[in-house]
Design a protein around this nucleic acid. Structure first.
Length: 253
DNA sequence: AATAGTTGCAACCGCATATCT
DNA sequence: TAGATATGCGGTTGCAACTAT
């Protein structure tokens, strides 16, 4: 199967998989611009000179396709099989925190790919909704409406260079840190502010302020959905526990 | 046994962002 | 600094395998 541009599409053959593995072995992950015919030709000619022209035609794939195949299937670190209880629990928590940011969620689930997580989540939600609908049909005619997931993210904060707050911070830190800060004009919080040097940091600040106001920082719609679906661990999911903060400190960035 | 519906997974597509020239 | 190119991400689709009728 070939696309209009001449590159192959559709399911990958074993031969293509082997060629891609060889290519990644040679150049490492992330060098997808090297997965091009001239480079491959050199590799293959070394490996199997007699079949080089046949083989070269076998990996006539675009870079994106190669990357996806490696990331979602060929990478030896990928963990196969069902998600265990802990993974699902962690996924739920992270999804509450991050929304549909599958790559970030997958980053906290060793061996799982963003595609795995996304597929599992979609199936999981589908199951939950369908089982809920069955329950509802048994009791009343009330319908469940799934609202779009609302995840609160901190807004970028522009800090004036003449801000008294910034001046105070700068004065209280050493010069090397000042240099780091000043070259990054768009940073939300100056780099010199310790662990809160990214948007996670500001999110935590937002969480704290919401907690003080006794409000649900994750948004009402999520809460309503979870209640409707009757998840067992509602209470845990609702409150921002110290565990979540630990996730952040461990390096979600 | 045949058919329709469902599920799980792999792959594609379009867009956003980062990097290079 | 702008445009081109490379890479990464999330949404969506296609399809084979499985299940229910």
């Amino acid at each position: 199967m070939e696309g209009s541009s001449g590159v192959r599409k559709g399911a990958w053959s074993n031969l293509e998989d082997d060629l891609l593995k060889a290519c990644v072995q040679q150049y490492g992950e992330g060098k997808w611009h090297l997965v091009t015919l001239p480079f491959l030709y050199i590799i293959i000619k070394k490996m199997l000179p007699a079949f080089s022209m046949i083989l070269i035609d076998s990996l006539n794939r675009c870079r994106k396709s190669c990357r996806l195949r490696w990331l979602n299937y060929l990478n030896p670190n990928i963990k196969r099989g069902m998600f265990d209880e802990d993974e699902v629990d962690l996924m739920l928590r992270l999804h509450r925190l991050l929304g549909n940011r599958w790559s970030l969620i997958a980053g906290r689930l060793p061996g799982r790919t963003p595609n795995d997580v996304k597929n599992y989540w979609n199936s999981y939600i589908r199951k939950k909704v369908s089982s809920h609908k069955k329950d509802v049909n048994n009791t009343s005619s009330k319908e469940i409406v799934i609202e779009p997931h609302v995840v609160i993210k901190p807004q970028p904060r522009t800090i004036s260079r003449t801000s008294p707050w910034l001046r105070e911070k700068l004065l209280s830190n050493d010069q090397s840190r000042d240099k780091q800060c000043t070259h990054d004009k768009t940073c939300n919080v100056p780099n010199s502010s310790g662990s809160n040097n990214n948007w996670w940091g500001t999110m935590l600040e937002d969480i704290e302020s919401n907690e003080k106001n006794d409000t649900c920082w994750l948004g009402e719609q999520d809460g309503a959905l979870l209640k409707d679906l009757n998840w067992d661990n509602d209470a845990e999911l609702f409150s921002l526990t110290s565990e979540v903060e630990n996730f952040l400190e461990e390096g979600l960035t």
